[in-house]
Design a protein around this nucleic acid. Structure first.
Length: 311
DNA sequence: ATAGCGCCCTGGTGGC
DNA sequence: TGCCACCAGGGCGCTA
């Protein structure tokens, strides 16, 4: 559920209150949500660390922690919320959301709580040297000192996807020429490739459907068959919907909450997602729902003219 | 390499 | 009301 705008919203709510907090205690109630390293090591290495910068890369949230005890470059706590995860910084007295699996007790007596009904979400703890420098820079963790470890082989530990992310969709690296290169010769539906985090990082089912509607492209269109002018329009629409969704603090249907536990507002501005059976805001045609790339797919059959290839 | 599928989990919904 | 099949915003690992 949380896609780029939701994770960015969480980052922005945490960045005001989390830096400077020291982790005094770690409670892990479900071992399976710790993706790397072992739950025991995760817990041990987290105690005593202090939160500094908070970054984001795609749908991953990265928290830089300083550990005075070890005196090294610190550690990176990485969180992926998958479908139903929540990461909320709250007063320790407040009632817990059910399905809370990890609780970090902070020096201010607040708690950072990770909850997830479906337990798909994962937490990881890395040393900076275990992550590509490029990743840290792209995530906005500016402390990453230049010069050290240039070309060392980095083994993808924990989350394979974290090590092969495509460009940030809001960066200048993400443009029509890039998409044309990635789409060249590909027969998969454009929707499938936009959901592929190694093509572009951070899009999920909601914003892909919305962007394809904005660009008037049928989601089943073979990616390689789209001309570059249309791709340019698609890129513009992806950036536009992400910017607007961040401004609305994300989309909440049921589970998503920001870092303070508050819902988002972008569900009020969706044009096709979750609007099957309702009239298209542009032409009045009934919004259709089908299955593409293994996921529920919403589109306007009139505005997003159907394609012969695929589907 | 690419494309498609099942699976990991639990809860909500809609049909009967 | 009760039961149950089906669906859900993501990613991974397997298959051919």
């Amino acid at each position: 559920m949380p896609e780029l705008p939701e994770v960015e919203t969480i980052r922005r709510s945490l960045v005001k209150r989390l830096p400077g907090e020291m982790i005094a205690g770690v409670a892990i109630r479900s071992l399976d949500v710790i993706g790397y390293p072992s739950a025991g090591e995760f817990q041990e290495r987290l105690v005593g660390a202090t939160a500094r910068a908070i970054g984001r890369r795609g749908k991953y949230l990265l928290i830089h922690l300083e550990s005075p005890a070890t005196g090294d470059a610190g550690q990176i706590l990485v969180v992926h919320l998958r479908m139903t995860g929540r990461l909320v910084l709250t007063d320790g007295e407040r009632d817990e959301f059910p399905h809370t699996h990890v609780v970090l007790d902070l020096s201010s007596r607040q708690q950072l709580r990770f909850s997830d009904v479906r337990r798909f979400g994962r937490l990881y703890l890395y040393r900076p040297g275990q992550l590509p420098r490029q990743l840290l820079v792209e995530a906005g963790l500016a402390w990453a000192a230049p010069g050290d470890h240039h070309h060392q082989d980095i083994k993808p530990l924990g989350s394979p996807g974290l090590f092969q992310l495509g460009p940030e969709p809001l960066s200048d690296d993400f443009d029509a020429a890039y998409l044309a290169r990635k789409f060249y010769g590909r027969r998969a539906p454009v929707k499938a490739l936009l959901l592929d985090q190694s093509v572009v990082a951070g899009l999920g089912n909601i914003y892909v459907d919305e962007a394809l509607f904005g660009a008037a492209i049928h989601p089943g269109t073979a990616a390689g068959s789209i001309d570059e002018a249309t791709l340019a329009n698609l890129v513009d629409n992806i950036k536009d919907v992400l910017v607007r969704a961040i401004a609305a603090r994300g989309t909440t249907f049921s589970d998503y909450r920001d870092g303070s536990g508050e819902p988002g507002e972008f569900q009020n501005y969706l044009q096709v997602f979750a609007r099957a059976g309702q009239p298209c805001t542009r032409c009045g045609t009934t919004i259709a729902k089908t299955r593409i790339a293994g996921r529920g797919t919403h589109f306007c059959p009139a505005c997003q003219g159907r394609r012969s290839d695929t589907t």
